[in-house]
Every structure is written in C-alpha cells, then in structure tokens.
Design a protein around this nucleic acid. Structure first.
Lengths: 235, 235
DNA sequence: AATCTGAGTTACAGGCTCTAACAAAAGTTA
DNA sequence: TAACTTTTGTTAGAGCCTGTAACTCAGATT
C-alpha cells in the first residue's frame, strides 16, 4: 500500500521527537538531570523554546517519553545478554550482570529510571512509561519461570508467611498471570528486591560511606540470590 | 558571666536560622522538595527573597543545613527508641523499627536524606551534613558492637571473601576504629545495606509494582537480619 | 552626637515553564 | 497556478526561580 502524505508528515514528526529525546539525553549525560530543560534542548537543536511544545505538551510529558525509551533500551540490552545459553540459571546471572553494567555505564540514565520517586503519572496503567517498566520486570519473571520449570528451587511454605504478606504475594501472582506457584513468586520478589535495592543504592552513591568499588559487593549479592534460586554457579 | 550584646545578636541570628529551616521543612512536607525555594521560604516568613542570603549563602547551603538537622533529629529518634532494654538484639530491632517508622511517617524528609543522590558537598569531610550522616551510621555500628561483645554471631571467614571486598571491609573497619573484627563488620555491612536498601526503595515507591503494604516485607527483612546476627526474636 | 555594622529593602540579570498571538512554510484543492 | 487550510515555527510576555548590587535604616559602639 502506497504511503499517503499524512503518513509522511507523521514520520517527519516522529523523527523530530526522536531528535528531541536524543538531545535531552545528551544533556542528561553531560550535565545532569536538571540540564534537560525545554529551553536547553531547543537551544541545542537550533529551535526556540516554545517549538518543543508542539511535540511534547509539557516538560513532564517529555520526561516520561525519555524514561519510557530508556526502559525499552534497557530491556533490550538485557534480552540481548540473556542470549540463548542452555541453563536458565546462567541466563539469569547474565541478565543481572547486564543490568548492573547498564546501571554503572549509564548512571545518569539509571538514576532517572530507578532512583527517582515514581511520580503519579506512572500510576496510570496506560502510561507508556508504566508499560515499559512492567515489560522490564517481566523479562526477569519469565526467566525465573523457566528456571522453576527446569529445576524447582526450594520455596518456603506459604503458610509460614505473614498473612498480610501472603495476600500481597497472591495478588501479585494473580496480576502477573504467571505459571509460578505463589511460594516461588515470593522467592522471586525477595531476590528481585535485593538486587534492585543494591543497584539503586549504588546509583545514588549511598553506599560510598562503606564501599568504593561495588563489583565484589554485587557479586556477593548474586551469590546469595543464586543460593536462594538453587543456581549452582560455575566458579 | 554576663552576656555581651554580640552574644545577643548572635542568638537572634541563630533564631532566625532556625525559623528559616523550620519554614523550609514545612514547605517540604506540604508541597514537596521543589517547594523549598528561597523565595517561597522568604515569602512565607514575610521577608523579601534576598534577606535569606544573609543567613545562608546559597540554596544549596540551606539545603545542607536542613539535611544535617534532619539527620540529627533522626539519630535522636533512634537513640530514644533504643532505650535501656537489656538485650542488644532487642535494642537493635527496636532501633530498626524506629528508623522505618521515621521513614514512613516522614517520607518527604527521609527522601531528602537517603533517596537523593549524595552530592559532592557531602564528600567534604568537614561538612556539617556529612558529620551528621556519619554519626547516624555509628549508632547502629555501636549497637552491633555491643551485640557482638555479649554474644558473637557467626561470621564467615574473611579468607572466603573476594579479595577486593575484603580490602574494603578492612579499610572500613580501620576507618571507623571499631572493636569489631573485620569478619563481623562484613556481616554488619551486609545487614545494614539490606535494611537500608529496602527502606530507600520503599521511600521511592519503587516497590509499588509488587507490594502495597510494606510492613510485613520489612518484618521479613528483619527476620533475615536477626538470623544473620543470631538474634532470637521473641515471637 | 557621630559613626559603624548588620539586616532588611528594591532593582535587576538571567534562568526556567508555558501561553498567546502571529508569521511562514507546506500540503490540498479549486 | 492560485487560493485555502493545516502545521510548524516565531516572538512577546507572565510568572516562577537563584543570586548580586546598591541602597536605607535601626541599633550598637565610640
């Protein structure tokens, strides 16, 4: 089917949006998050400020778009790292390391994604940003499902959990429509929170009081997680 | 000794500074961190903007002062919660819960302290802010020292640690002049990072994707930590 | 009483977000 | 091709912000 002129205009429009986001990200990396101002982006693009508002209705909307794009990029990087290796355990470790590589190589971006308060906007279930975030979570969940399918790891009996916690784990299990039994979901969430927490603290420099090099700290965390998930790491 | 007029002036000055910080904090709680602008603070105090600069040289300096004050307040709240109970283990749990209570009751303030990138300023070892932060860390370390003295918890042999990690633990042990053996310091840091990470993630709403109520999650984390530190919790 | 100091003031420079009104470019149609 | 419509840019400006400069004025010192 031939392209209509409207299609072409729309493509032009999208190209400009891409350039706006690219410029914003350049400023982020060079000069920090507060440098991503509408004015500064426009200036760098050779436009005058208000022109940007033709493409993004507000600074917040622009930020959401940048964040969603980064989420997708990160997701892709991790899927790349997963590769086609046989053992799900190894894949999971590779993915975790890829996540951290991304976080340390792109600290400014990582902070934007994870080390900033999740704003109201992200609560809207239809927001592009939220979608991107959820897809990101999912790739880890899927991998743990594969791991469980291949060789179930020890999961504590749900009855031993605090009822309030159990209810939330059940709700999450339901929501995500995962094949994993709730007890395993609980283990997954525990691991995930731990990994995630460490990376966020690192990104915020909040661990500088004790550590200067977090490589071995992260590896120790991975050891813990491997133990919980019954992954025997080839040392 | 009688007070000189200069003393009185200095007291006035300090009183004004206190009011500035109090006003800033009010704005923080009511309208978020970005509401703590010099202008807004002055406006609310019935002053004109530049007056504030007589008391704090820049917005950043003012923020540092607010943060240092909050650190001290938090430290005091935790020392309060420690109380005089006999068992160091119970004291540690009480302190941890007090920390979380403070974090959840005063989310905006907690975010300011822990969930924002540690700026350069905090690297200056003489900064009031850094001092306050270090004193905060110390109270937990001191308590673990007491715990260790009373009943040493199992600590893994240092030789089993990654050399890079071991070096950092040794350096930290040295720096803090603690009586704790390095192996125990490592356990302490692991526990602390875990607790800390969970609270920061909660404060940033980064766990909302899975949990709505973090009370039981936190308690589960405390269970883990108790196990590592050999604290038998009375259930 | 004259002077000095410190705390406040206004004015302003330069940044930001975002709206309003207008100009120019580009595509559409008679 | 000429006239019309839509889209994309422009400038002007309101109203925030941080921070500096220059001024006023009250209170303490000499």
């Amino acid at each position: 089917m031939a392209q209509t002129a409207a299609d072409w205009r729309e493509r032009q429009r999208e190209a400009t949006r891409v350039e706006i986001r690219r410029t914003a990200r350049g400023l982020l990396v060079e000069s920090g998050p507060e440098a991503m101002s509408v004015s500064a982006i426009a200036r760098r693009m050779g436009l005058s400020g208000p022109a940007i508002y033709r493409y993004y209705g507000s600074h917040d909307h622009l930020m959401d778009a940048v964040i969603a794009e980064l989420f997708n990029e990160l997701t892709e990087a991790i899927e790349q790292a997963r590769g086609g290796r046989a053992a799900p355990g190894e894949r999971l470790l590779a993915m975790s390391r890829a996540l951290r590589s991304w976080a340390t190589a792109r600290t400014a971006e990582f902070r934007l994604l994870f080390a900033a308060p999740v704003p109201e906007a992200n609560r809207r279930p239809d927001s592009e940003r939220r979608q991107a975030g959820e897809q990101f979570d999912r790739i880890f969940l899927r991998e743990v499902e594969a791991l469980w399918a291949e060789r179930p790891f020890p999961a504590p009996d749900l009855d031993r959990l605090d009822p309030a916690l159990r209810a939330q784990v059940l709700a999450y299990t339901e929501r995500k429509r995962t094949a994993l039994p709730p007890a395993a979901v609980h283990v997954f969430l525990t691991c995930w929170t731990r990994l995630y927490g460490l990376l966020v603290m690192e990104a915020l420099d909040q661990l500088a009081f004790a550590y200067t090099d977090l490589d071995p700290v992260f590896e120790a965390c991975l050891d813990d997680i491997s133990a919980m998930l019954g992954i025997s790491e080839p040392r």
